[in-house]
Design a protein around this nucleic acid. Structure first.
Lengths: 242, 242
DNA sequence: GCGTTGACTATGGTCAGACCACAGGTCGCA
DNA sequence: TGCGACCTGTGGTCTGACCATAGTCAACGC
Protein backbone atom coordinates (compact mmCIF):
# COMPACT_ATOMS: atom_id res chain seq x y z
CA UNK A 1 0.00 0.00 0.00
CA UNK A 2 2.34 2.70 1.16
CA UNK A 3 5.17 3.16 -1.33
CA UNK A 4 8.02 2.04 0.84
CA UNK A 5 6.93 2.54 4.38
CA UNK A 6 7.57 -0.90 5.84
CA UNK A 7 11.22 -1.43 4.98
CA UNK A 8 12.41 0.29 8.08
CA UNK A 9 13.51 3.12 5.86
CA UNK A 10 12.09 6.54 6.12
CA UNK A 11 13.11 9.72 4.39
CA UNK A 12 15.19 12.06 6.47
CA UNK A 13 13.36 15.15 7.47
CA UNK A 14 15.54 17.99 6.35
CA UNK A 15 15.16 21.13 8.37
CA UNK A 16 15.94 24.43 6.81
CA UNK A 17 18.34 26.62 8.69
CA UNK A 18 15.76 29.04 9.90
CA UNK A 19 13.81 26.10 11.30
CA UNK A 20 16.84 24.99 13.24
CA UNK A 21 17.20 28.47 14.64
CA UNK A 22 13.51 28.54 15.41
CA UNK A 23 13.74 25.22 17.22
CA UNK A 24 16.60 26.35 19.40
CA UNK A 25 14.93 29.59 20.38
CA UNK A 26 11.65 27.80 21.04
CA UNK A 27 13.47 25.29 23.21
CA UNK A 28 14.95 28.09 25.25
CA UNK A 29 11.48 29.51 25.75
CA UNK A 30 9.97 26.13 26.61
CA UNK A 31 12.75 25.56 29.13
CA UNK A 32 12.11 28.90 30.68
CA UNK A 33 15.55 30.21 29.83
CA UNK A 34 13.90 32.99 27.88
CA UNK A 35 11.12 34.93 29.52
CA UNK A 36 9.17 38.05 28.65
CA UNK A 37 11.43 41.07 28.79
CA UNK A 38 14.59 39.09 28.04
CA UNK A 39 16.73 40.10 25.11
CA UNK A 40 18.23 37.79 22.55
CA UNK A 41 21.78 38.16 21.35
CA UNK A 42 22.19 40.40 18.34
CA UNK A 43 21.51 38.92 14.94
CA UNK A 44 25.18 38.81 14.00
CA UNK A 45 26.14 37.26 17.30
CA UNK A 46 23.37 34.68 17.15
CA UNK A 47 24.35 33.79 13.61
CA UNK A 48 27.89 33.16 14.76
CA UNK A 49 26.81 31.04 17.74
CA UNK A 50 24.64 28.86 15.54
CA UNK A 51 27.01 28.71 12.63
CA UNK A 52 24.49 30.03 10.15
CA UNK A 53 24.17 33.18 8.12
CA UNK A 54 22.46 36.25 9.35
CA UNK A 55 19.70 35.78 6.79
CA UNK A 56 18.74 32.46 8.37
CA UNK A 57 18.60 34.02 11.80
CA UNK A 58 16.54 36.89 10.50
CA UNK A 59 13.96 34.60 8.93
CA UNK A 60 13.53 32.81 12.24
CA UNK A 61 13.19 36.10 14.07
CA UNK A 62 10.58 37.32 11.59
CA UNK A 63 8.55 34.19 12.25
CA UNK A 64 8.71 34.65 16.00
CA UNK A 65 7.75 38.25 15.54
CA UNK A 66 4.75 37.22 13.47
CA UNK A 67 3.73 34.80 16.21
CA UNK A 68 3.80 37.63 18.71
CA UNK A 69 6.74 36.23 20.63
CA UNK A 70 9.37 38.84 19.85
CA UNK A 71 9.58 42.44 18.92
CA UNK A 72 12.57 44.03 17.24
CA UNK A 73 13.89 47.49 17.83
CA UNK A 74 16.73 49.33 16.16
CA UNK A 75 19.25 51.60 17.75
CA UNK A 76 20.70 51.23 21.23
CA UNK A 77 19.18 51.12 24.67
CA UNK A 78 16.67 48.86 26.35
CA UNK A 79 14.19 48.84 23.48
CA UNK A 80 16.70 47.75 20.90
CA UNK A 81 17.46 44.27 19.75
CA UNK A 82 15.08 41.33 19.79
CA UNK A 83 13.07 41.37 23.00
CA UNK A 84 10.71 38.65 24.17
CA UNK A 85 7.36 40.34 24.35
CA UNK A 86 5.29 40.60 27.49
CA UNK A 87 1.96 40.52 25.76
CA UNK A 88 0.37 40.76 22.42
CA UNK A 89 -2.71 39.20 20.98
CA UNK A 90 -2.75 40.51 17.44
CA UNK A 91 -0.77 37.56 16.16
CA UNK A 92 -3.70 35.26 16.78
CA UNK A 93 -6.00 37.74 15.10
CA UNK A 94 -3.78 37.92 12.03
CA UNK A 95 -3.78 34.18 11.81
CA UNK A 96 -7.53 33.84 12.13
CA UNK A 97 -8.19 36.64 9.69
CA UNK A 98 -6.08 35.05 6.99
CA UNK A 99 -7.56 31.63 7.51
CA UNK A 100 -11.02 33.15 7.42
CA UNK A 101 -10.17 34.77 4.09
CA UNK A 102 -8.90 31.47 2.80
CA UNK A 103 -12.26 29.91 3.61
CA UNK A 104 -10.74 27.45 5.98
CA UNK A 105 -13.80 28.31 7.98
CA UNK A 106 -16.76 30.56 7.49
CA UNK A 107 -17.98 33.66 9.18
CA UNK A 108 -20.87 31.67 10.58
CA UNK A 109 -18.44 29.30 12.24
CA UNK A 110 -16.52 32.14 13.80
CA UNK A 111 -19.76 33.60 15.03
CA UNK A 112 -20.85 30.32 16.56
CA UNK A 113 -17.59 29.97 18.45
CA UNK A 114 -17.96 33.55 19.57
CA UNK A 115 -21.41 32.88 20.94
CA UNK A 116 -20.22 29.91 22.94
CA UNK A 117 -17.31 31.81 24.40
CA UNK A 118 -19.43 34.89 25.07
CA UNK A 119 -21.99 32.85 26.94
CA UNK A 120 -19.35 31.50 29.20
CA UNK A 121 -17.51 34.81 29.51
CA UNK A 122 -20.52 36.77 30.60
CA UNK A 123 -21.54 34.11 33.08
CA UNK A 124 -18.09 34.17 34.66
CA UNK A 125 -18.00 37.93 34.56
CA UNK A 126 -21.22 38.05 36.51
CA UNK A 127 -19.46 36.07 39.21
CA UNK A 128 -16.15 37.90 39.29
CA UNK A 129 -16.87 41.49 38.29
CA UNK A 130 -15.81 44.20 40.72
CA UNK A 131 -17.15 47.72 41.01
CA UNK A 132 -14.46 49.21 38.81
CA UNK A 133 -15.16 46.61 36.13
CA UNK A 134 -18.80 47.59 36.08
CA UNK A 135 -17.83 51.25 35.90
CA UNK A 136 -15.61 50.61 32.91
CA UNK A 137 -18.37 48.80 31.07
CA UNK A 138 -20.82 51.58 31.81
CA UNK A 139 -18.36 54.11 30.45
CA UNK A 140 -18.15 52.15 27.21
CA UNK A 141 -21.92 52.01 26.88
CA UNK A 142 -22.08 55.74 27.46
CA UNK A 143 -19.51 56.36 24.76
CA UNK A 144 -21.51 54.20 22.38
CA UNK A 145 -24.45 56.57 22.74
CA UNK A 146 -22.55 59.63 21.56
CA UNK A 147 -23.95 60.93 18.31
CA UNK A 148 -20.72 62.20 16.86
CA UNK A 149 -18.94 58.89 16.51
CA UNK A 150 -18.91 56.89 13.29
CA UNK A 151 -19.68 53.24 13.00
CA UNK A 152 -15.99 52.43 12.96
CA UNK A 153 -15.55 53.92 16.40
CA UNK A 154 -18.78 52.30 17.49
CA UNK A 155 -17.48 48.94 16.43
CA UNK A 156 -14.24 49.56 18.34
CA UNK A 157 -16.24 50.32 21.46
CA UNK A 158 -18.37 47.25 20.88
CA UNK A 159 -15.26 45.11 20.57
CA UNK A 160 -13.81 46.72 23.67
CA UNK A 161 -16.96 45.93 25.60
CA UNK A 162 -16.96 42.26 24.76
CA UNK A 163 -13.23 41.90 25.26
CA UNK A 164 -13.51 43.58 28.64
CA UNK A 165 -16.24 41.19 29.65
CA UNK A 166 -14.09 38.28 28.52
CA UNK A 167 -11.13 39.57 30.50
CA UNK A 168 -13.34 39.96 33.56
CA UNK A 169 -13.89 36.23 33.50
CA UNK A 170 -10.43 35.86 34.95
CA UNK A 171 -9.25 33.76 32.03
CA UNK A 172 -6.62 35.53 29.97
CA UNK A 173 -6.85 33.06 27.12
CA UNK A 174 -10.54 33.78 26.80
CA UNK A 175 -9.83 37.49 26.55
CA UNK A 176 -7.20 36.87 23.90
CA UNK A 177 -9.46 34.60 21.89
CA UNK A 178 -12.29 37.08 22.07
CA UNK A 179 -10.07 39.88 20.84
CA UNK A 180 -8.76 37.72 18.04
CA UNK A 181 -12.18 36.54 16.92
CA UNK A 182 -13.49 40.09 16.88
CA UNK A 183 -10.50 41.40 14.98
CA UNK A 184 -10.76 38.57 12.51
CA UNK A 185 -14.33 39.47 11.58
CA UNK A 186 -13.87 43.23 11.86
CA UNK A 187 -14.08 43.70 8.11
CA UNK A 188 -17.31 41.80 7.87
CA UNK A 189 -18.88 43.61 10.81
CA UNK A 190 -18.12 46.98 9.29
CA UNK A 191 -19.64 45.77 6.06
CA UNK A 192 -22.84 45.00 7.93
CA UNK A 193 -22.97 48.53 9.32
CA UNK A 194 -22.29 49.92 5.89
CA UNK A 195 -25.20 48.01 4.45
CA UNK A 196 -27.66 49.49 6.93
CA UNK A 197 -29.73 52.44 5.83
CA UNK A 198 -29.38 54.01 9.28
CA UNK A 199 -26.74 52.30 11.34
CA UNK A 200 -27.44 54.58 14.30
CA UNK A 201 -30.78 52.86 14.87
CA UNK A 202 -29.08 49.50 15.15
CA UNK A 203 -26.32 51.03 17.24
CA UNK A 204 -28.76 52.45 19.74
CA UNK A 205 -30.44 49.10 20.04
CA UNK A 206 -27.07 47.46 20.60
CA UNK A 207 -26.19 50.03 23.23
CA UNK A 208 -29.45 49.30 25.02
CA UNK A 209 -28.63 45.62 24.99
CA UNK A 210 -25.17 46.30 26.36
CA UNK A 211 -26.76 48.36 29.09
CA UNK A 212 -29.00 45.46 30.04
CA UNK A 213 -26.06 43.08 30.03
CA UNK A 214 -24.12 45.29 32.41
CA UNK A 215 -27.14 45.42 34.68
CA UNK A 216 -27.33 41.65 34.71
CA UNK A 217 -23.62 41.34 35.46
CA UNK A 218 -23.89 43.83 38.26
CA UNK A 219 -26.86 41.93 39.70
CA UNK A 220 -24.72 38.77 39.53
CA UNK A 221 -27.41 37.23 37.36
CA UNK A 222 -25.34 34.78 35.32
CA UNK A 223 -28.27 33.10 33.65
CA UNK A 224 -29.89 36.38 32.73
CA UNK A 225 -26.67 37.79 31.36
CA UNK A 226 -26.09 34.67 29.29
CA UNK A 227 -29.52 34.89 27.73
CA UNK A 228 -29.11 38.57 27.01
CA UNK A 229 -25.75 38.22 25.35
CA UNK A 230 -26.96 35.37 23.22
CA UNK A 231 -29.93 37.36 22.02
CA UNK A 232 -27.65 40.37 21.55
CA UNK A 233 -25.40 38.59 19.10
CA UNK A 234 -28.23 36.83 17.33
CA UNK A 235 -29.99 40.16 16.80
CA UNK A 236 -27.01 41.75 15.15
CA UNK A 237 -26.43 38.90 12.77
CA UNK A 238 -30.15 38.74 11.98
CA UNK A 239 -29.91 42.37 10.82
CA UNK A 240 -27.32 41.49 8.23
CA UNK A 241 -29.79 41.16 5.39
CA UNK A 242 -31.41 44.54 5.88
CA UNK B 1 -1.58 63.92 29.30
CA UNK B 2 -0.34 62.32 26.15
CA UNK B 3 2.97 63.78 25.04
CA UNK B 4 1.86 65.36 21.81
CA UNK B 5 -1.24 63.54 20.75
CA UNK B 6 -3.66 66.42 20.34
CA UNK B 7 -1.85 68.56 17.80
CA UNK B 8 -3.21 66.60 14.91
CA UNK B 9 0.31 65.28 14.42
CA UNK B 10 1.17 61.68 14.73
CA UNK B 11 4.37 59.84 13.99
CA UNK B 12 4.46 58.08 10.67
CA UNK B 13 4.27 54.35 10.96
CA UNK B 14 7.26 53.05 9.07
CA UNK B 15 6.68 49.67 7.54
CA UNK B 16 9.59 47.39 6.90
CA UNK B 17 9.88 45.95 3.45
CA UNK B 18 8.77 42.50 4.40
CA UNK B 19 5.68 44.04 5.97
CA UNK B 20 4.86 45.77 2.71
CA UNK B 21 5.22 42.49 0.89
CA UNK B 22 3.10 40.81 3.53
CA UNK B 23 0.41 43.46 3.19
CA UNK B 24 0.21 43.05 -0.56
CA UNK B 25 -0.01 39.28 -0.41
CA UNK B 26 -2.58 39.46 2.37
CA UNK B 27 -4.62 41.90 0.33
CA UNK B 28 -4.61 39.50 -2.59
CA UNK B 29 -5.87 36.79 -0.29
CA UNK B 30 -8.50 39.01 1.29
CA UNK B 31 -9.70 40.03 -2.17
CA UNK B 32 -9.93 36.42 -3.20
CA UNK B 33 -7.33 36.78 -5.92
CA UNK B 34 -5.30 34.11 -4.18
CA UNK B 35 -7.03 30.92 -3.16
CA UNK B 36 -5.88 27.59 -1.79
CA UNK B 37 -3.89 25.76 -4.43
CA UNK B 38 -2.78 28.90 -6.23
CA UNK B 39 0.90 29.53 -6.71
CA UNK B 40 2.73 32.76 -6.12
CA UNK B 41 5.30 34.08 -8.55
CA UNK B 42 8.83 32.96 -7.87
CA UNK B 43 10.80 34.79 -5.23
CA UNK B 44 13.01 36.54 -7.74
CA UNK B 45 10.06 37.53 -9.89
CA UNK B 46 8.04 38.77 -6.92
CA UNK B 47 11.01 40.78 -5.72
CA UNK B 48 11.25 42.46 -9.08
CA UNK B 49 7.52 43.22 -9.25
CA UNK B 50 7.58 44.83 -5.82
CA UNK B 51 10.89 46.55 -6.25
CA UNK B 52 12.46 44.98 -3.20
CA UNK B 53 15.24 42.53 -2.61
CA UNK B 54 14.74 38.82 -2.54
CA UNK B 55 15.56 38.77 1.16
CA UNK B 56 12.59 40.98 1.92
CA UNK B 57 10.29 38.76 -0.07
CA UNK B 58 11.66 35.69 1.65
CA UNK B 59 11.02 37.09 5.11
CA UNK B 60 7.42 37.75 4.18
CA UNK B 61 7.04 34.26 2.77
CA UNK B 62 8.53 32.74 5.92
CA UNK B 63 5.93 34.58 7.98
CA UNK B 64 3.06 33.38 5.83
CA UNK B 65 4.47 29.89 6.03
CA UNK B 66 4.56 30.10 9.81
CA UNK B 67 0.96 31.25 9.81
CA UNK B 68 0.01 28.16 7.83
CA UNK B 69 -0.92 30.11 4.73
CA UNK B 70 1.80 29.00 2.37
CA UNK B 71 4.07 26.10 1.82
CA UNK B 72 7.29 26.24 -0.14
CA UNK B 73 8.74 23.55 -2.35
CA UNK B 74 11.96 23.43 -4.28
CA UNK B 75 12.54 22.06 -7.74
CA UNK B 76 10.05 22.17 -10.56
CA UNK B 77 6.57 20.84 -11.01
CA UNK B 78 3.26 21.46 -9.27
CA UNK B 79 4.66 21.14 -5.75
CA UNK B 80 7.39 23.69 -6.27
CA UNK B 81 7.30 27.34 -5.50
CA UNK B 82 5.13 29.02 -2.91
CA UNK B 83 1.69 27.46 -2.90
CA UNK B 84 -1.31 28.69 -0.93
CA UNK B 85 -2.16 25.86 1.38
CA UNK B 86 -5.50 24.11 1.42
CA UNK B 87 -5.45 23.25 5.06
CA UNK B 88 -3.23 23.19 8.06
CA UNK B 89 -3.91 23.76 11.70
CA UNK B 90 -0.48 23.37 13.26
CA UNK B 91 0.23 27.09 12.97
CA UNK B 92 -2.36 27.85 15.59
CA UNK B 93 -0.95 25.12 17.80
CA UNK B 94 2.56 26.52 17.51
CA UNK B 95 1.31 29.90 18.47
CA UNK B 96 -0.63 28.69 21.49
CA UNK B 97 2.22 26.47 22.64
CA UNK B 98 4.69 29.34 22.63
CA UNK B 99 2.33 31.70 24.38
CA UNK B 100 1.60 29.04 26.93
CA UNK B 101 5.32 28.65 27.57
CA UNK B 102 5.64 32.39 27.93
CA UNK B 103 3.00 32.29 30.63
CA UNK B 104 0.71 34.55 28.73
CA UNK B 105 -1.87 32.17 30.08
CA UNK B 106 -1.83 29.14 32.30
CA UNK B 107 -2.56 25.52 31.71
CA UNK B 108 -5.67 25.89 33.84
CA UNK B 109 -6.94 28.57 31.51
CA UNK B 110 -6.34 26.41 28.48
CA UNK B 111 -8.15 23.57 30.19
CA UNK B 112 -11.13 25.76 31.04
CA UNK B 113 -11.47 26.90 27.46
CA UNK B 114 -11.18 23.29 26.38
CA UNK B 115 -14.00 22.25 28.68
CA UNK B 116 -16.30 24.93 27.32
CA UNK B 117 -15.58 24.01 23.74
CA UNK B 118 -15.81 20.27 24.45
CA UNK B 119 -19.21 20.71 26.07
CA UNK B 120 -20.51 22.42 23.01
CA UNK B 121 -18.73 20.11 20.60
CA UNK B 122 -20.12 16.94 22.07
CA UNK B 123 -23.61 18.37 22.24
CA UNK B 124 -23.45 19.28 18.57
CA UNK B 125 -21.89 15.97 17.68
CA UNK B 126 -24.80 14.18 19.32
CA UNK B 127 -27.06 16.01 16.91
CA UNK B 128 -25.06 15.64 13.72
CA UNK B 129 -23.14 12.38 14.02
CA UNK B 130 -23.66 9.82 11.29
CA UNK B 131 -23.10 6.09 11.44
CA UNK B 132 -19.59 6.27 10.05
CA UNK B 133 -18.67 8.94 12.58
CA UNK B 134 -19.76 6.66 15.39
CA UNK B 135 -17.81 3.80 13.87
CA UNK B 136 -14.65 5.91 13.73
CA UNK B 137 -14.98 6.89 17.35
CA UNK B 138 -15.53 3.27 18.38
CA UNK B 139 -12.42 2.26 16.50
CA UNK B 140 -10.41 4.84 18.41
CA UNK B 141 -11.75 3.59 21.73
CA UNK B 142 -10.87 0.04 20.73
CA UNK B 143 -7.34 1.09 19.87
CA UNK B 144 -7.02 2.79 23.24
CA UNK B 145 -7.61 -0.53 24.94
CA UNK B 146 -4.67 -2.28 23.29
CA UNK B 147 -2.05 -3.24 25.85
CA UNK B 148 0.97 -2.81 23.63
CA UNK B 149 0.70 0.92 23.12
CA UNK B 150 2.61 3.44 25.17
CA UNK B 151 1.13 6.48 26.78
CA UNK B 152 2.36 8.63 23.94
CA UNK B 153 0.29 6.68 21.46
CA UNK B 154 -2.57 6.63 23.93
CA UNK B 155 -2.47 10.39 24.14
CA UNK B 156 -2.47 10.66 20.36
CA UNK B 157 -5.58 8.50 20.22
CA UNK B 158 -7.16 10.57 22.96
CA UNK B 159 -6.44 13.74 21.03
CA UNK B 160 -7.79 12.15 17.88
CA UNK B 161 -10.98 11.22 19.66
CA UNK B 162 -11.70 14.70 20.92
CA UNK B 163 -10.71 16.35 17.66
CA UNK B 164 -12.97 13.97 15.76
CA UNK B 165 -15.85 14.84 18.03
CA UNK B 166 -15.16 18.51 17.50
CA UNK B 167 -15.09 18.05 13.75
CA UNK B 168 -18.35 16.16 13.89
CA UNK B 169 -19.97 19.31 15.23
CA UNK B 170 -19.90 20.62 11.70
CA UNK B 171 -17.83 23.64 12.71
CA UNK B 172 -14.35 23.52 11.19
CA UNK B 173 -13.04 26.30 13.41
CA UNK B 174 -14.03 24.30 16.46
CA UNK B 175 -12.09 21.32 15.17
CA UNK B 176 -9.06 23.48 14.50
CA UNK B 177 -9.20 25.09 17.91
CA UNK B 178 -9.55 21.74 19.61
CA UNK B 179 -6.54 20.37 17.78
CA UNK B 180 -4.51 23.44 18.64
CA UNK B 181 -5.46 23.42 22.30
CA UNK B 182 -4.60 19.75 22.60
CA UNK B 183 -1.29 20.16 20.80
CA UNK B 184 -0.44 23.15 22.94
CA UNK B 185 -0.80 21.17 26.18
CA UNK B 186 0.60 17.93 24.80
CA UNK B 187 3.80 18.26 26.80
CA UNK B 188 1.93 18.77 30.04
CA UNK B 189 -0.46 15.90 29.40
CA UNK B 190 2.42 13.51 28.81
CA UNK B 191 4.01 14.74 32.02
CA UNK B 192 0.83 13.79 33.86
CA UNK B 193 0.98 10.25 32.47
CA UNK B 194 4.63 10.06 33.37
CA UNK B 195 3.89 10.95 36.94
CA UNK B 196 1.41 8.13 37.35
CA UNK B 197 2.61 4.93 38.97
CA UNK B 198 0.50 2.90 36.55
CA UNK B 199 -0.75 4.99 33.68
CA UNK B 200 -2.62 2.02 32.23
CA UNK B 201 -5.15 2.14 35.06
CA UNK B 202 -5.96 5.73 34.27
CA UNK B 203 -5.95 4.96 30.57
CA UNK B 204 -8.49 2.19 30.97
CA UNK B 205 -10.73 4.47 32.97
CA UNK B 206 -10.43 7.10 30.26
CA UNK B 207 -11.24 4.53 27.59
CA UNK B 208 -14.36 3.55 29.52
CA UNK B 209 -15.40 7.16 29.69
CA UNK B 210 -14.85 7.57 25.98
CA UNK B 211 -16.96 4.52 25.41
CA UNK B 212 -19.79 6.02 27.42
CA UNK B 213 -19.48 9.29 25.53
CA UNK B 214 -19.81 7.51 22.19
CA UNK B 215 -22.87 5.71 23.48
CA UNK B 216 -24.43 9.01 24.47
CA UNK B 217 -23.63 10.55 21.11
CA UNK B 218 -25.10 7.58 19.30
CA UNK B 219 -28.24 7.83 21.45
CA UNK B 220 -28.43 11.52 20.46
CA UNK B 221 -28.34 12.36 24.15
CA UNK B 222 -26.76 15.80 24.06
CA UNK B 223 -27.25 16.55 27.72
CA UNK B 224 -25.87 13.22 28.80
CA UNK B 225 -22.87 13.49 26.52
CA UNK B 226 -22.14 16.97 27.81
CA UNK B 227 -22.17 15.82 31.41
CA UNK B 228 -19.99 12.83 30.61
CA UNK B 229 -17.38 14.82 28.77
CA UNK B 230 -17.20 17.39 31.51
CA UNK B 231 -16.68 14.74 34.15
CA UNK B 232 -14.20 13.02 31.83
CA UNK B 233 -11.92 16.03 31.63
CA UNK B 234 -12.30 16.92 35.28
CA UNK B 235 -11.30 13.39 36.26
CA UNK B 236 -8.10 13.49 34.31
CA UNK B 237 -7.01 16.80 35.70
CA UNK B 238 -7.93 15.70 39.20
CA UNK B 239 -5.48 12.81 38.80
CA UNK B 240 -2.60 15.15 38.17
CA UNK B 241 -1.38 15.15 41.73
CA UNK B 242 -1.25 11.38 42.10
C1' DG C 1 10.39 1.64 -31.10
C1' DC C 2 11.47 2.12 -26.45
C1' DG C 3 13.71 2.79 -22.32
C1' DT C 4 17.62 4.93 -20.06
C1' DT C 5 20.56 8.54 -19.20
C1' DG C 6 22.28 12.85 -19.00
C1' DA C 7 22.04 17.94 -19.59
C1' DC C 8 19.14 21.81 -18.87
C1' DT C 9 16.23 24.89 -16.30
C1' DA C 10 13.43 26.89 -12.81
C1' DT C 11 12.70 26.78 -8.21
C1' DG C 12 13.78 27.59 -3.25
C1' DG C 13 17.92 27.44 0.25
C1' DT C 14 22.02 29.56 1.82
C1' DC C 15 25.72 32.48 2.36
C1' DA C 16 28.99 36.57 2.61
C1' DG C 17 29.60 41.17 2.64
C1' DA C 18 28.42 45.65 2.27
C1' DC C 19 25.95 49.86 3.40
C1' DC C 20 22.12 52.58 5.66
C1' DA C 21 19.17 54.50 9.51
C1' DC C 22 18.61 54.90 14.07
C1' DA C 23 19.22 55.55 19.15
C1' DG C 24 21.75 55.87 22.89
C1' DG C 25 26.26 56.79 25.11
C1' DT C 26 30.55 59.35 25.44
C1' DC C 27 33.83 62.73 25.04
C1' DG C 28 35.52 67.25 24.33
C1' DC C 29 34.89 71.94 23.80
C1' DA C 30 32.85 76.34 25.01
C1' DT D 1 27.96 72.91 33.46
C1' DG D 2 25.80 72.33 29.18
C1' DC D 3 25.58 70.94 24.70
C1' DG D 4 26.89 69.36 20.36
C1' DA D 5 29.76 66.14 17.52
C1' DC D 6 31.21 61.71 17.27
C1' DC D 7 31.26 56.75 18.23
C1' DT D 8 29.19 52.33 18.57
C1' DG D 9 25.96 48.72 18.40
C1' DT D 10 21.57 47.59 16.78
C1' DG D 11 18.23 46.09 13.13
C1' DG D 12 16.99 47.06 7.96
C1' DT D 13 18.18 46.39 3.32
C1' DC D 14 20.36 45.18 -0.80
C1' DT D 15 23.45 42.68 -4.06
C1' DG D 16 25.30 38.86 -6.10
C1' DA D 17 26.75 34.61 -5.86
C1' DC D 18 26.47 29.57 -5.37
C1' DC D 19 24.11 25.13 -3.94
C1' DA D 20 20.38 21.41 -3.96
C1' DT D 21 16.42 19.73 -5.90
C1' DA D 22 13.00 18.09 -9.22
C1' DG D 23 10.80 18.15 -13.42
C1' DT D 24 11.59 18.24 -18.60
C1' DC D 25 13.34 16.73 -22.69
C1' DA D 26 16.47 15.45 -26.04
C1' DA D 27 20.25 12.36 -27.22
C1' DC D 28 21.73 7.92 -26.98
C1' DG D 29 21.97 2.86 -27.09
C1' DC D 30 19.66 -1.32 -27.36
Amino acid sequence: MSESADNGWQPVRRLRTHEHVLAQIEQQILDGRLSPGDRLPGERELAEYLGVSRAGVREALRVLEALGVLSAGVGSGPASGSVVRGEGTEALANLLRLHLALSRFTQREVMEVRVQLERWAVAEAAVHAGAEDIARLRAVVLAMRQREIGYEQFNELDTGFHVSVAEMSGNALLGTLMRALRDAVRREMLAVFESLSDWRVTADALADQHHAIVDAIEARDSAGATALVERHIATFYADRGN
